[in-house]
Design a protein around this nucleic acid. Structure first.
Length: 204
DNA sequence: GCGGTGATAGAT
DNA sequence: TCTATCACCGCC
């Protein structure tokens, strides 16, 4: 407990309310992301995403993810090769891959390395969070920007925190959204949802 | 169902 | 430089 408190003080300014929140927000170690993208996508369900800005601490519970397996997965950006943009996915696990799609929306991913990552698709609001069901709405609600690309996700201001794992009976798998161009990979059931949540982006 | 919007990657 | 291509969203 002492250790948690010390960690908490490091996270947030002193103040009883902030401190209380911080105690609840136990950052996940970077090693949490050290597993296959498929396993991480599953494990992230029920965990928390925290963005601590100057004004507020925004917190959401992850209820929908997608695994992007690496260069062999034709739906994965790294299938196009190792480029300036995809470089971060070939780096160490536990960092953020943030990119712009359709000229409008940002997407936030957790890197697992070897060109693979997990896309965060939907959050259930916990603290100071607007509707975040959908990858674009998620980044907007959290206040994530392109500058967060490559940010280590065990470090403030943007980090993953311990939530409550989703029991297997509530985990639903489905094909990923918007990857029709990826041939056989378009059908792979690499999307993971918490079936109890009303905040998933697309119904199965 | 369709238009808006801009970074990226590969072509020229 | 130019052009096609998008892990989407909101409004029609």
């Amino acid at each position: 407990m002492r250790r948690r408190l010390r960690r908490a003080r490091w996270l947030l300014p002193v103040g009883s309310a902030a401190l209380w929140r911080a105690v609840r927000l136990d950052p996940l170690p970077r090693s949490f992301s050290k597993r296959s993208p498929e396993r991480l996508a599953r494990a992230l369900l029920g965990q928390l995403v925290v963005h601590h800005t100057a004004r507020v601490t925004r917190v959401g519970r992850i209820v929908e993810t997608e695994a992007y397996l690496g260069p062999h997965d034709l739906a994965c950006h790294s299938a196009k090769g190792r480029t300036k943009r995809t470089e971060v996915m070939f780096g160490p696990h536990g960092h953020a891959y943030v990119y712009l799609v359709y000229g409008l929306h940002l997407c936030l991913n957790v890197v697992t390395g070897q060109g693979a990552a997990v896309l965060l698709r939907a959050l259930e609001p916990v603290e100071e969070l607007a509707r975040a069901d959908g990858p674009g709405r998620l980044t907007r609600a959290l206040g994530v920007s392109l500058r967060h690309n490559t940010h280590p996700l065990d470090t403030p201001p943007l980090f993953l925190a311990r939530g409550k794992p989703v029991p297997a009976r509530f985990v639903v798998r489905a094909p990923r959204v918007g990857v029709d161009y990826a041939g056989q990979w378009a059908h792979a059931p690499l999307r993971f949802l918490d079936a109890r949540s009303a905040h998933v982006s697309v119904k199965v």
